[in-house]
Computed example of a mutant assay.
Amino acid sequence: MKVILTYGTFDLFHVGHVRLLERLSKLGDKLIVGLSSDEFNKGKGKSSFFSYEERAEILSSCKFVDLVIPEHTWEQKAADIKKYNVDVFAMGDDWEGRFDSLKSLCDVVYLPRTKSISTSEIKTLIAELKKNDLDKVQKSLNDAIEIIKKLNYSE
């Protein structure tokens, strides 16, 4: 049995995640996903919209994923490779070269990301939408204040 291992946060699960997991699953017989814990993300200066438990449930329901394990540190990868008898460690190509040190333990592969979609871009768009909504609310409040002032002056 050929075992594949990858890691990630997998927040705001989207088609890019699905396509990556599908490609990873085709590299072998079993796909294990190391999912960044909330505490680990916090240490990286990241925060997730969904909790670890929610993200783990979402990933576990994906037909390409056989096992989800928690990722608590950068350093655990070598131990996980040994523990789960991993044949291929694979990541998106945005991590190219960062895990080459693991080549002594297994094959290391970097796969291209799905173009035109990323969790960071989705979060940016959501933040912009929120800002636009807040700007509209602020404008409405300012308009209301002006109307009230005019009404008060006309009395």
Score class of each variant (00 low, 15 high):
Glu22Asn: 14
Lys77Gln: 12
Phe10Trp: 08
Gly8Cys: 03
Glu39His: 01
Trp95Val: 07
Thr114Asn: 00
Ser140Asn: 14
Asp29Glu: 13
Ile58Ala: 02
Glu22Asp: 14
Phe49Pro: 08
Val68Glu: 03
Gln76Cys: 10
Val88His: 06
Leu125Tyr: 15
Val88Leu: 03
Asp135Val: 01
Lys2Glu: 10
Phe64Gln: 02
Arg23Lys: 15
Lys103Ser: 10
Ser120Trp: 06
Arg55Cys: 05
Ser60Asp: 03
Glu54Trp: 07
Ala56Cys: 06
Gln138Trp: 08
Phe89Glu: 10
Leu105Ile: 07
Ala144Ile: 11
Ala127Cys: 04
Trp74Ala: 12
Ile4Phe: 01
Gln76Lys: 03
Lys44Ser: 13
Glu155Gln: 12
Phe10Pro: 04
Asp38His: 00
Leu31Trp: 12
Lys150Ala: 14
Lys82Asp: 08
Glu121Pro: 03
Ile81Asn: 01
Thr73His: 09
Ile32Trp: 00
Lys77Gly: 11
Val109Thr: 12
Phe13Asn: 01
Lys103Thr: 03
Thr119Ile: 10
Gly97Met: 05
Glu75Asp: 14
Lys82Phe: 03
Leu12Ala: 10
Ile32Pro: 09
Phe64Asn: 08
Val88Glu: 09
Asp66Ala: 12
Gly8Leu: 03
Val108Ile: 02
Asp29Arg: 06
Lys131His: 10
Val86Lys: 01
Asp107Ile: 04
Lys150Glu: 15
Lys131Asp: 12
Ser101Pro: 02
Lys44Glu: 14
Val68Pro: 02
Lys131Ser: 14
Ala78Pro: 07
Thr124Lys: 15
Lys139Thr: 04
Thr6Val: 10
Lys46Met: 12
Asp11Asn: 04
His14Asn: 09
Ser48Val: 01
Leu67Gly: 06
Asp66Pro: 09
Ala56Glu: 11
Asn152His: 13
Pro112Trp: 05
Val88Thr: 15
Ala78Gly: 12
Asn41Ala: 05
Lys46Pro: 05
Phe99His: 15
His72Pro: 00
Asp29Ile: 04
Lys130Gly: 00
Ile145Leu: 14
Asn142Gly: 01
Leu134Arg: 06
Lys131Asn: 09
Glu71Gly: 04
Leu5Gly: 06
Lys130Asp: 07
Ile32Lys: 02
Leu129Lys: 13
Gln76Glu: 15
Glu53Ser: 10
Lys150Asn: 13
Ser36Cys: 11
Ser36Asp: 11
Tyr110Gly: 08
Ala90Phe: 04
Ile145Gly: 06
Pro112His: 05
Leu102Arg: 04
Asp135Arg: 09
His14Cys: 02
Thr9Lys: 12
Cys106Val: 09
His17Gly: 00
Ile147Asn: 09
Ser47Gln: 08
Trp74Ile: 11
Thr119Glu: 09
Asn132Trp: 07
Arg19Cys: 06
Arg55Ala: 07
Lys150Thr: 12
Val137Tyr: 08
Cys106Gly: 11
Leu129Thr: 11
Ala78Lys: 11
Ala127Lys: 15
Lys123Leu: 06
Pro70Gln: 04
Lys77Asn: 15
Tyr7Pro: 08
Ser47Cys: 10
Thr124Ile: 12
Asp38Met: 01
Asn132Arg: 15
Asp143Met: 06
